Simulated assay, not measured.
Amino acid sequence: MPESDINTVVKEAQHRWNTAFNGGDAAAVAALYTLDGIVLPPTHAAVKGIAAITEFWAGLISAGFRDHGIELHDAQSVGDLAYSNGKWWATGSGDDGKEVRFEGTLVTVLRRERDGSWKTCLHIWN
């Protein structure tokens, strides 16, 4: 797939993710992952599968995290796999209860499903 096309695919996937998360819909966020998807949070054990991914994001949403955004830096594809990296940010409460802007970098791996859609199969950030 040409680089410009995979950039569009990844940007659209990121937009759907941000919309679902910022809308407070953990199930809609989890639906953007493959059935065997894995989320690797920096301070949590690996989260595997749709049910666990839903529960994980529901916890962050209920903790007050919001205003999530992603800036794509690069995306590449090989066959039915694509990988991307970029910057993320979100607002939430710090240890002292005050509002804090969190930010870091992320890497995602997406896989093209049988229906032609692209879903995240691996998601890691710091």
Rank of each mutant, 00 (worst) to 15 (best):
E55K: 15
G69Y: 12
G37F: 03
A26D: 02
D36K: 14
A58Q: 15
G64S: 10
D25Q: 06
F56A: 05
D36T: 13
V29L: 03
G49N: 05
G24W: 07
P42V: 04
G24M: 04
L32F: 06
A31T: 13
G23Q: 11
A75F: 03
A51K: 02
H44F: 10
V29T: 00
S62H: 11
L40Y: 04
L32D: 10
P41F: 08
G59E: 10
L32G: 13
F65L: 12
I50Y: 03
V29M: 08
L60G: 11
F21P: 12
I70W: 00
I50T: 01
G23P: 07
L72N: 12
D25M: 09
P41I: 09
S77R: 12
W57M: 02
I70E: 04
L40K: 12
R66K: 15
I53D: 03
H44N: 12
G24F: 05
L72F: 10
E71H: 08
W57Q: 03
A28R: 15
T54N: 13
H68L: 13
I38P: 04
A58M: 03
I38F: 02
A46T: 06
A75H: 08
S77A: 15
H73K: 15
G49P: 01
G64A: 05
F21Y: 15
A46M: 09
P42F: 09
G23T: 13
E71M: 06
A30R: 03
A75K: 11
E55I: 02
D36E: 14
V78T: 14
F21R: 09
T19D: 13
P41S: 07
A52G: 13
A27R: 13
G64Y: 02
I38L: 01
A26C: 00
G24V: 10
E71R: 14
L60R: 07
L35M: 08
G23F: 09
P41Q: 11
D74R: 15
Q76S: 13
L72Q: 11
D25A: 07
T43A: 14
W57D: 00
A51M: 04
A20Y: 07
H68D: 02
G49Y: 03
D74M: 05
L60P: 06
A20R: 07
F21C: 04
A30C: 04
E71L: 06
F21Q: 11
G59H: 00
A31H: 00
H44K: 14
A30H: 06
I61F: 05
T43I: 13
L72V: 10
S77V: 01
D74V: 00
A26H: 00
F56W: 11
P41H: 11
A26L: 07
W57E: 09
A52P: 11
G69D: 15
T54G: 05
H73P: 01
I61W: 00
G59T: 01
N22S: 10
I50M: 08
G24Q: 05
V78N: 14
H44R: 14
D25E: 04
G23A: 07
K48R: 15
A75L: 06
I53G: 00
V39S: 07
A27C: 05
A30L: 03
N22I: 08
L60N: 06
H68K: 14
E55V: 09
R66A: 15
